[in-house]
Simulated assay, not measured.
Amino acid sequence: MFVVSLNYKVPLTEIDRLAPGHIEWLEACYAEGIFVASRPKRPRTGGVIIARCSREVLDARLAADPFAQGGAADYDITEFTARMTAAGLGSFKEA
């Protein structure tokens, strides 16, 4: 799995302009089963995405994000293996 930390590089007015396309992109990634969770950061300096896919798929999807295409965000990607999970999240454990 991956934790993706988005960091905005442009004013929030530009983020807001790109947000409808970004939300459509998020919805498509959820529909494909790639994203597990996401939310803007507080304060609103970017966002966080938890993804479950290969690195190649993740890189391709991130490149299609309107924030990336508009030069509005950078992405810091951390790969991890979930060895322990809360009750009800056992399907996310990896060997």
Rank of each mutant, 00 (worst) to 15 (best):
I50T: 14
Q69L: 11
G70Y: 04
R83F: 12
E32Q: 15
E14K: 12
I77P: 02
A28F: 01
P66R: 00
C29A: 05
T81G: 10
R83A: 06
S91T: 15
I49S: 00
A31Q: 11
G88M: 02
D74Q: 10
D59H: 12
P66M: 03
D76M: 06
A60P: 08
A68Y: 11
M84N: 13
A68R: 02
M84P: 03
S91P: 05
R83L: 14
R55T: 06
A87L: 13
T13P: 07
P11R: 06
V57W: 05
R39H: 14
E79Q: 13
L18Q: 04
A37E: 10
P20R: 08
S91L: 15
R42V: 12
S54I: 04
A72N: 00
I34D: 03
A51E: 01
E27A: 13
A73Q: 00
G71P: 02
R42M: 14
R17L: 04
G90T: 07
F35L: 12
I49C: 08
L58E: 01
I50S: 10
L89K: 07
I34Q: 01
E79Y: 06
G90C: 09
G88W: 07
W25T: 08
S38W: 00
K9D: 01
D16F: 14
P11H: 09
T85F: 12
G71I: 01
V48R: 09
Y30W: 12
T78L: 09
I23E: 02
A37S: 13
F80R: 02
I15A: 01
G47V: 01
A64Y: 06
K9F: 00
P11D: 13
G90Q: 15
R55A: 14
R52N: 14
V10I: 09
V10S: 05
A37R: 08
